[in-house]
Design a protein around this nucleic acid. Structure first.
Length: 358
DNA sequence: TCTGGGGTCCTAGGACCC
DNA sequence: TCTGGGGTCCTAGGACCC
């Protein structure tokens, strides 16, 4: 038996859940995002495949989406419903014989499993998820997490694809580096300035070149991404949060210090609730702020001592805002409360949202 | 043509200490 | 006139992911 990494990813997850409970939407362009009002400041969370044909993508402003497809159906994001469906998906994976499940998000997970026929196992996982939820997913099969994760996209929708050391460059070599998990637009640009555009280019680049550009740690890490290398260990240890935060984009910009302080108060109350639930006080306060139009700042301040007190959190956040000495209108505010580490630290694994070098 | 809300980790450099 | 070497803590800022 050989150990394999499967990456399971739901197809058009939010749209699929909405279509399931509103069957009359099947086959139509459906866009889930914000409060479902495309005149508001909000972005697309998920677009159905029909909506994607109009060029609508997740992360796109709803105002642009509605321009691309005026007849699309816009629906609000309904967190509790997706969370319940997500739990069913993950339970189906955990119930799969021999599976070790590591959550990556609402709608995706790594599954570690021993198999002689991983493609057949992947199809069986697809069936298990469909039987439990009535929803379709795609599955990537790999000999590392990186390869499994990238393979899933090649299998979509409702399919299975395998990437291993043997076919990695054959399949991925001519694709742009941005197709890799962990390389975004900025890293892509910096690589391009060295003439590195494709996965082949990156895989052939010496570590010391990358280290000179990105640092001794990140440089070689990026090189490993190009080769599809990396960890193959799937770890089901529960995730421990480092921080909890809340942010809001205001439909009308905030223009006075009083309005900003009041808005910070609302956010601090939400953060306090999370911290108390977690029973870990806040040790550092992060302020995130976007001035109209598009300048985003974050600022951090350590607290003299850990606290749950929302008044302290607000005062700290407001002080950070004042220090910016910028009286432009404010479009977005966020407060993140970084918690004291749990007993024993963070040696338990953590995958959610992680970019770290494996 | 406009930009969510939830996260995590990395690098650089200054302050300070021995 | 020149200016250690090692360490920790902190802030600013960047990047990426779902």
């Amino acid at each position: 038996m050989t150990a394999w990494v499967l990456h399971v990813d739901m197809d058009q997850f939010l749209a699929a859940v909405e279509i399931q409970r509103h069957p009359e939407l099947a086959g139509k362009p459906v866009v889930v995002g914000g409060r479902g009002d495309p005149t508001e400041r909000a972005v697309v969370s998920t677009a159905s495949y029909e909506a994607r044909e109009f060029g609508i993508r997740s992360g796109m402003a709803l105002k642009i989406a509605v321009r691309r497809c005026p007849e699309a159906i816009f629906l609000p994001v309904d967190f509790p419903v997706y969370e319940a469906v997500s739990a069913k998906v993950m339970q189906a994976l955990r119930d799969f014989p021999g599976a070790v499940v590591e959550l990556l998000g609402w709608d995706e997970a790594f599954v570690g499993i021993d198999s002689e026929d991983p493609m057949e196992t992947a199809h069986a996982v697809r069936r298990a998820v469909f039987d439990a939820t009535g929803l379709h997913c795609s599955v990537g099969v790999g000999d590392t997490k990186m390869r499994a994760k990238v393979a899933t996209d090649l299998g979509k929708p409702r399919g299975v694809f395998r990437l291993t050391r043997d076919n990695w460059l054959e399949v991925m070599g001519d694709r742009p580096v941005k197709a890799l998990w962990g390389i975004g637009s900025q890293t892509s640009k910096r690589l391009e300035s060295h003439g590195i555009r494709t996965v082949n280019d990156l895989a052939a680049t010496a570590d010391d070149v990358l280290a000179a550009e990105f640092g001794p740690n990140t440089g070689p890490h990026i090189g490993r991404l190009g080769r599809g290398a990396g960890s193959a260990v799937v770890d089901d240890t529960p995730w421990i949060a480092r921080a909890h935060g809340h942010e809001t984009t205001y439909q009308q910009d905030l223009t006075t210090p009083d309005a900003i302080r009041a808005a910070l108060g609302d956010l601090a109350a939400l953060v306090e609730k999370d911290l108390r639930q977690e029973q870990r006080p806040c040790q550092r306060v992060h302020l995130k702020i976007r001035f109209a139009p598009f300048f985003t700042f974050t600022r951090v301040r350590k607290l003299p001592e850990p606290t749950y007190d929302p008044a302290v959190i607000v005062d700290t956040a407001f002080a950070l805002y004042t220090k910016l000495a910028d009286d432009r209108p404010v479009r977005l505010l966020g407060i993140r409360g970084e918690m004291v580490p749990p007993e024993g630290g963070y040696d338990a694994p953590r995958t959610h949202g992680r970019r770290g070098n494996p």
